Simulated scan of single mutants.
Amino acid sequence: MIFRLGELFCGPGGIARGATTANINNPEWGISHQWANDYDADTCKTYTRNICPDRPESVICGDIRELDFNKLYQIGDIDALAFGFPCNDFSIVGEQLGFDGKFGPLYSFGVKVLQDKQPQWFLAENVGGLQSANEGRAMQVIFDAMRNAGYRLYPNLYKFEEYGVPQARHRIIIVGIKNDLPYEFQIPSTVPYINADVSCRNAIENPPIPENASNNERTTQSALVVERLSHILPGQNAFNADLPEHLKLNVKGAKMSQIYKRLDPTLPSYTITGSGGGGTHVYHWTEPRALTNRERARLQTFPDDYVFEGSKESVRKQIGMAVPCAGAKIIFEAILKTFAGISYESMPANIEE
């Protein structure tokens, strides 16, 4: 079966790329794009260009809180749904407002589609901070809503660097299967990836990024930033490096140890983020500069021919908000194998459903 996938909060297409390239060596099983929604115009252009260039009408750009869902439904029926509901209010980097924030309640629109269309399965994604939001209540409220829509849940905190992704990116992925279907999803094992080279040096340098690659323009660093980086060793940041007094940062209450943090070339990258001011752009291990967007995209496992639309800062945001394509692909292949009756290496979930 080729599952027709609908997406909410689709972002630039990390989930969609993983879904549409999922391959279990059986042409009868796969996932195809049906429709998608996101609120950001550049993001929608990126998604359309790379995922569905021949069907631009299948991507509806607009705020989901004002969306006429019938416009999505009229595009075509779906067998599956994916929604990476916004993580801003659940992230440990932010204020962790949970349901009290602007973005916390947006998961409910995914639940609405589950109720309306009853797809056979779904995949929902959010940050690890969801576990502690609202004193731990947020996750259970979301789980209950999904169960009440008619689904068995298979949540897990995936550490993507353990699945061959060159980035320490930890995300809660919830797979749901309709109660009336006999399939039981298993968490794919990390064992097949135990020997993978997940160093950021390997990801960025092997093979070299083509000279004509898109989204690869460098940021001009100020003399002060160049001087500061010259005192920061690989793996260090602006707070644990031995900086001269005039280069130290007078930042109160900084929550991110990633400020002016250089990558350690022997390790996966630290988490790529989509926003943040000075010092949050991810810094090269030897060159005194921030990474280019193409280098960030490699750490998110987007292929070099995946073109991001918009300004440099817009592209940075898109890349930072995405799900790593390669990580998503592994989970989608496990879903396909579950429905196709093909066994695969699995391991216990680390979140209690």
Rank of each mutant, 00 (worst) to 15 (best):
G11T: 06
P12W: 03
G13P: 04
A19I: 11
T21G: 07
I24K: 13
I24H: 09
H33V: 01
W35I: 06
A36T: 01
A41Q: 15
K45A: 15
Y47W: 05
T48W: 06
R49P: 01
N50R: 10
N50G: 11
P53C: 01
S58W: 10
I60H: 04
L67H: 04
F69W: 14
L72W: 06
G76L: 05
A80D: 10
N88Q: 15
D89P: 10
I92A: 13
Q96I: 03
G101E: 08
G101T: 08
G104I: 00
G104S: 06
L106G: 08
L106M: 12
Y107V: 04
K112V: 01
Q115E: 15
D116T: 11
F122I: 05
E125S: 11
N134L: 09
E135D: 15
I142N: 12
D144C: 08
R147E: 14
N148W: 00
A149Y: 09
A149F: 05
G150S: 07
R152P: 00
N156E: 11
Y158W: 11
K159I: 04
E161M: 04
E161C: 08
P166K: 09
Q167V: 10
G176Q: 12
K178W: 02
V191Q: 14
V191H: 07
Y193K: 03
I194N: 10
N195I: 00
R201S: 13
I209F: 00
I209E: 01
P210S: 00
E211P: 00
S214P: 07
S214T: 12
N216W: 00
R218W: 01
T219W: 12
A223T: 11
V225S: 14
Q236E: 15
N237I: 07
D242V: 08
P244N: 06
E245W: 00
E245V: 09
H246T: 06
V251T: 14
S257F: 05
I259Y: 04
R262W: 09
P265W: 10
G277H: 10
G278M: 12
V282A: 13
T292I: 02
N293Y: 12
E295V: 03
F302E: 09
K312H: 12
S314T: 08
A322T: 09
C325H: 05
G327H: 02
K329L: 00
E333A: 10
K337V: 03
K337Q: 15
T338G: 12
Y344F: 14
S346A: 15
I351C: 08
